[in-house]
Design a protein around this nucleic acid. Sequence first.
RNA 1: GGUCCUGUGGCCGAGCGGCUAGGCUCAGCUCUGCAAAAGCUGCUACUCCGGUUCGAAUCCGGACGGGACCUCCA
Length: 489
Amino acid sequence: MEQTLYIYNSITREKEKFSSIIPGHVGMYVCGPTVYSDVHLGNVRTFLTFDMVRRYLEFIGYKVRYVRNITDVGHLTGDSDDGEDKIAKKAKLENLEPMEVVQKYTNGFHDVMTIFNIGRPSIEPTATGHIIEQIEMIQDIISNGFAYVSNGSVYFDVRKFSEKFNYGKLSGRVIDDLLSNTRDLDGQDEKRDGLDFALWKKAEPQHLMRWNSPWGEGFPGWHIECSVMSTKYLGKEFDIHGGGMDLKFPHHECEIAQNVGATGHEPVRYWMHGNMLTVNGRKMAKSEGNGFTPEELITGNHKLLERGYTPMTVRFFFLMGHYASTLDFSNEALQAAERGYKRMTAAIQTLKQVTPSEKSDFDASKLREACYAAMNDDFNTPVLISELFEAVRVINSAKEGSIKLSAEQIEALTQIFQDFFYAVMGMKDEEGSGTSELTESLMQMIIGMRADAKANKDYATSDKLRDALAKIHVQIKDTKEGATWSYEG
RNA sequence: GGUCCUGUGGCCGAGCGGCUAGGCUCAGCUCUGCAAAAGCUGCUACUCCGGUUCGAAUCCGGACGGGACCUCCA
């Protein structure tokens, strides 16, 4: 690789030089959604973050195998024995088959990913599709002595594990602190220890999702699917594991324990955690009631939203903050991002109209280096964007004539936007709703009429035309070369 | 209560030992029939109190504020 990439590794808490296990190839696993309800915007941020990571890795020449799972079974509602499978609960509520619920929300999730131009993973495995593999890994963990069977369920023995390995390494927990904090008063508990977590749960009679296992009918525990599927598709040790910050503990911690317990291998080289989207300083979460769906965001149909925003505005907004920092949502911030985004896309269009000069006052190669430098520094998209705005100023100045650009430099700038704005940031042009041939010729007709009126100094007519167009969200801008129009719907 | 993160100009948001990030907003100017757009100029900040240093927003200690995790959560 020509680029030297640095990644902040959550488990070492340091920025580290990235080097893949197999040269030229990267294995990346990201915890996907639990498909029992609509995704909200906070979820989208995480998937968008790792979409950007994947795009950059591919851009600098890696072949990436990107695995992102669909959790369609197994997450209990609580840490108690009477906890219900979330999906089964929802199914009863809506009178649907569990797999019908799963399908419905999986489809919805895919639609949302498409809207935000978030690429599909290379492999998108489901938990229900890997029950056999999960049972096998649980058996391995048992035979290695790190799990025990209790009343038809199987639990991971955290105490036993921590005698040999470091449980809590990723999240910085100290096992004794954890014990004093999670001590359960429930004496009936099947667990030997409050910290132990389920690998396999016995299914109660009313439980809908159930599979046969060596321990009776049941379903897999909360964390085992990720260990199994990452191992199956990426190997015992792989390059990058991503997910939201809120999964660090216990989910990712348990994943490590399971992998090490089963294979003896530390599974992940680089842990990456995306930070939360907040609203008024608080985490966006279903339970807080401050989450809105992507649909609500686009239509503006939510009490927190003054109006709607396009998907690419939101994508730009997300990328304006670093993935590892919390990002606070507000209408003001969204509107600022929207204006910046429009300014940038306008400049990309403007670049096509810049007349080349013999010589050039600008050297795009330095800018290109700066773009790489920003991304190489732990995917610093806010800095990348600030570099791109440098190019915006250059383009506009060139159009205005205050600086000169050679054909070569124009080409280089075009390529920078092609590479970093479209390929790496994953932006795409949003079609206004009036770009058909008919619309275009009608607009040229109107602009021509208005130009005639202006030539005759009939400003009443020219303003009337402009105002009328403004009412249907078509904006006219007069330039030296004549008027341009754009749809601002 | 425990663990960890964080506090930057009107707003958002980078930087994390010396070199005005950037975006949005606001004001002025240029251009323009008027707008809009664009360009230029201006507004130059780092919660507070100590310390280290030739030099700190940036490192260390403390105070105060905000947040995340410790339970399903991207």
